[in-house]
Design a protein around this nucleic acid. Structure first.
Lengths: 270, 270
DNA sequence: CGAGAGGTTGATGTATTTCAATAGCTGTGG
DNA sequence: CCACAGCTATTGAAATACATCAACCTCTCG
């Protein structure tokens, strides 16, 4: 819940300053704090925030909760595009054609702030810094997607899963939670779709990272034991070597193993 | 070359109307056509337009020529992100951190229009329609990248290459060239990087599509013979079946083969 | 408590990569 | 102008990463 959002007509409202804080952009100094207010709407887990093809008119900011955004391809297959959480902006992809290009679905109960697109652009015209910030947010989104493309086309399954976990950790950190120990809000299926892998591969990879002592997993409970190693991991050592090594001084090995598994090292340890 | 760009101080210049036309956005009716002009700069094949980390201050619009944009990962590997051509806007990813997040390299001689970011935002403030158009362009870019992400994580190698070709064709069409028969401006290596495949897989896949009669390839010369089939192709029939089938009524088969290869059909034909 | 969704793990198959050998272009300098 | 060097592309054979199919287990929640 927003620290100081207030109730009015039975629903929560936030002012411009609160919205800017949430988006991590500087609020305009000249702000007329009271005359622009933003309504909150609550969604239950499983509910859709917007659908593909639906007429676009409002952006959403996540105030609390976890979501996924998905594409549905021509054969009805769901493709996960992102896992928005507190502070993220949803619906930008609707600006282009005035219809949402993706679907947003709540993974947990969510509190969303509505920002009518008209209000959004009007504010940009009034506050120069805000317009700048809006371009920034969109540019940031483009960079984020570029990173995703790089990751999808260049990394192995192990590296994808490892980075996914560290990225999640960093986002939890930014939100003020522990970045080392957290609960996944999505299924293996959804992680797999997001990373371009099958759910079985995700499950196996998590088990392997667990074996190696880089993380601990139990169902959706994750502990990042060696975040540095995870972040730079490129590929796992061959399975046979892994067994023996994992029984040795795992911590030490993990640090030497990166960024690339070293054959001589493996030999030396066996 | 821009239809009506003019020379001044030894280099070409375009006005706002020309720039808007190029970007396929409506030019502001109220435009003061003469007081904002944009300089052209020419780059030779192989030259860099901007580098990663370089201070950001200008956007580029492709007036003619072909380029690639790339990420360089922490180990120096190049990851191709896009192949910009006429009408495309470059450098948006630099807004976020005020430093370019990617590198743009000319694949052929190029004529680029410089748009200082300050000019860009200033124009948005003066012409409301322009600000709207700028958001549109950025949203379009986000949607394009989302499509790319879907494609990378869900499609087979054959489908990726097939879509790559039809997408290229569509862009050539929009530029007024033939969308059926064109020359690739990039190497197999670069296509592979873009699609998350090795250059060998790209080469083999092109050969296979050629075998099937869906395209013809000779070095960098491409002919799209059955664009509809290419666009909806999901996976190729097994290699053994392919040989026999390709010797039969290929055209007919191609049409029935989609969107998914049908086992009974293959059996019936053999 | 039972049903159903989510997760793990094994055996097997296959798409794609990797390694390697060969041949075709392109441009440069003698 | 030809020859040669160095990219670029093709193709084959072998290796492997990941997917697929399948069985079983585990939680959750009505």
């Amino acid at each position: 819940m927003s620290d100081s959002a207030w109730r009015q007509q039975g629903s929560l409202w936030s002012n411009l300053r609160q919205v800017c804080d949430l988006l991590a952009i500087p609020a305009p100094a000249t702000a007329d704090q009271e005359d622009t207010v933003f309504q909150h709407v609550r969604f239950k887990a499983g509910q859709r925030i917007h659908r593909i093809g639906q007429a676009f008119d409002t952006l959403y900011i996540v105030n609390s909760g976890f979501l996924k955004t998905v594409h549905i391809d021509e054969y009805g297959n769901e493709q996960v595009l992102s896992f928005p959480m507190k502070g993220d902006l949803l619906g930008i992809d609707g600006i282009h054609k005035q219809h949402y290009a993706s679907e947003a679905i709540a993974l947990s109960d969510c509190d969303m702030i509505l920002v009518p697109y008209k209000t959004f652009t009007a504010l940009g015209r009034v506050h120069v810094e805000l317009e700048q910030a809006m371009f920034n947010v969109m540019s940031r989104e483009i960079v984020r997607e570029q990173m995703m493309i790089s990751m999808l086309s260049a990394l192995s399954a192990e590296a994808k899963v490892a980075r996914f976990l560290t990225n999640l950790g960093e986002r939890f950190n930014q939100m003020g939670y522990s970045g080392r120990s957290f609960n996944l809000r999505m299924t293996r299926q959804e992680i797999g779709s997001y990373l371009g892998l099958t759910l079985e591969t995700v499950s196996r990879t998590l088990s392997a990272l667990n074996e190696l002592g880089l993380i601990s997993v139990e169902q959706r409970e994750i502990n990042l034991i060696d975040p540095v190693a995870l972040k730079t991991l490129r590929r796992l050592p061959p399975a046979k070597a892994r067994i023996k090594v994992s029984e040795k001084v795992t911590a030490l090995v993990n640090k030497n193993l990166l960024p690339q598994w070293n054959g001589e090292l493996a030999a030396a340890l066996n």
